[in-house]
């Protein structure tokens, strides 16, 4: 490829890699938020108390049906008006975390629904409190089959982090744009970012498949 300036590409590699750390950090933190919050949302959604389950269902549906971009705009531009000031990075992590928490809540819901009714009844019969019940009995059974979908959402989150560049979070895509605009050479930075995501998602997808095999789900 004579049009791809390898020298230039090597030159900009360090700053892209530095920004990639941001990308990875946001993804991991956001994922932690998503899997924890998602679990609570799922449990609330399945609750028998209608005053809890219906509003939660509406919120989940609303967040799942609307773009991440607008949601982070909302957090970044609306919250300061109410005295909450956060850095772009913090808003980004929370925004992406909450967004994916709603997808993951549906995954949890499927997993929890798949736990046989008899288990829930046994837990009641043994007079277990909810915390112990979920922790020791229900969740271990619910989580196994849904680990692969969770893995897929981790990959999806990674690929969604560039959206945060719109609120000035300097992750790898924003860095590439900045570098490109300085030198007017966009081919190398953007292609490299593309390869970065491609490589990561292939590796992660492979790991998820390995996990599926290990759990003997395929």
């Amino acid at each position: 490829m004579s049009f791809f300036d390898w020298h230039y590409a090597l030159q900009i590699l360090p700053e892209l890699l530095r920004a990639s750390l941001n990308t990875l950090g946001i993804t991991l933190l956001g994922f932690v938020i998503a899997i924890v919050l998602g679990l609570f949302l799922a449990i609330a959604r399945r609750s028998n108390r209608v005053w809890l389950s219906w509003p939660i269902a509406l919120v989940i549906e609303f967040i799942r049906s609307t773009p991440l971009l607008i949601q982070v705009y909302f957090l970044y531009y609306v919250l300061p008006n109410y005295g909450v000031s956060m850095t772009a990075m913090q808003v980004g992590v929370i925004g992406i975390g909450v967004h994916y928490a709603c997808y993951i809540a549906e995954v949890y819901r499927g997993g929890l629904d798949a736990v046989p009714r008899a288990q829930w009844e046994a837990v009641t019969a043994l007079n277990m409190g909810p915390y112990i019940a979920y922790r020791n009995i229900i969740l271990p059974q619910a989580l196994r089959p849904i680990l692969p979908p969770l893995g897929n959402y981790l990959i999806a989150m990674l690929k969604d982090t560039p959206v945060l560049s719109a609120i000035t979070v300097v992750e790898i895509m924003q860095q590439a744009k900045n570098t490109g605009s300085e030198t007017f050479r966009y081919l190398e930075p953007i292609t490299m970012v593309g390869l970065f995501f491609l490589a990561l998602s292939i590796v992660l997808a492979y790991l998820v498949r390995r996990l599926e095999l290990r759990l003997e789900l395929r």
Partner: peptide
């Protein structure tokens, strides 16, 4: 495997 935004920018 690549991000949509990357594709659009490309």
């Amino acid at each position: 495997g690549t991000s949509l935004l990357v594709q659009l920018f490309w």
